[in-house]
Simulated assay, not measured.
Amino acid sequence: MSNRSLAVTEQIRTAMASSNPDDIVTGVKEAVAQEVTSLSPDAKIVLTSYFNHTYMPDLVLEWHDAGKRDSRPIFLRNDLRPEVTEQDVRSLARQEPVVLSLTALDEPSVAAGPLRERAREANRVLVTDVVSLADMATPFGTQRSALHGQEDAPLLRLVQANLLKGGRGLLTPQDVERLAQSATPPDSGVVLTDQFLATFQETTDEMFAPDAALRLRRSAELLRLGLSTEVIDAVTGLNGELRD
């Protein structure tokens, strides 16, 4: 676990230890909202009056894309017990939510396979935990993440910003590491290779809904053009719309 994930885990543990129910709810939601904001600073987080409810979300993420309002509900759960979470995935699928555990899923786990399959089948349900969100905010540790900031790793920043908006399937700390690596070129300032783009496309197709994966792929293509010395020739081969 990173320093950030340890810190948010302790923050949630402290909140849960309170004897005041209102303090528990407020403390937990504030800790989660902090991690959500770190990934999607352009979005608005709405805290609802519910807590750990069966079909009413704890938080709602709201944002604008190409001038249109969009949103995604976030349901908090104490843990990701596979048999219970699989039921959540099925019953909440129409809401296209994020099902977020307050404790980390221990992977590899023999029970993670069926849960991963159910989350994948739901197509627009993201099942993850607060540790994974914290790890995604600083995927390489504090020092290295500073070196791979928004200017040096713009593709990684786009992945971070779109994870809660368009992510899908089961996302564990191991998945976070793979996703972050796929979005971070080994050398900054160099033309992205075909192999890098192929790996990035494969990973985003797996971990993002189709429309979000397409936008990320087009972003990668534009980034490649920006680093290319043959921009004019390459631009003629692109078509389609790239939104926010």
Rank of each mutant, 00 (worst) to 15 (best):
A15H: 03
N239Y: 15
T9Q: 05
L222G: 00
N239H: 14
P154D: 13
Y55E: 13
S145M: 09
Q201Y: 07
V159L: 15
P154A: 09
R94E: 15
A183G: 10
H148L: 12
L179F: 03
T199D: 08
L242N: 04
D135P: 04
H64I: 04
A134I: 05
R144C: 06
A209G: 12
N78F: 08
T204D: 04
D65H: 13
R94M: 13
P173L: 02
S18T: 07
R243D: 11
E202V: 10
F75L: 07
N20V: 10
F75C: 05
E96K: 15
Q181Y: 09
A122Q: 03
A43T: 06
R144V: 09
Q87N: 12
L126Y: 00
S145E: 11
H53C: 09
K165P: 11
W63F: 11
V98M: 03
A146M: 13
L100Q: 01
G113Q: 10
V235P: 07
R157Q: 14
M56R: 15
M207F: 11
P154R: 11
T138V: 12
E151M: 12
R94N: 15
Q160S: 07
F51K: 08
Q11T: 10
R116P: 01
V130F: 01
L242Q: 07
A161D: 11
D70T: 11
A183Q: 09
E221M: 09
S188N: 13
V60N: 03
T138S: 10
V176R: 01
H53S: 14
G27W: 05
T128G: 01
R243V: 13
V235T: 12
V191H: 01
V235H: 06
Q174S: 09
L227D: 01
V191Q: 02
D175N: 11
G27P: 08
A180D: 06
V99D: 00
I12Q: 01
A212N: 13
A180I: 03
Q34F: 09
M56L: 13
L115I: 06
A122H: 02
E107P: 05
V25S: 07
L223H: 07
R144I: 08
E121D: 14
K29Y: 06
K68E: 14
E241V: 13
D244S: 10
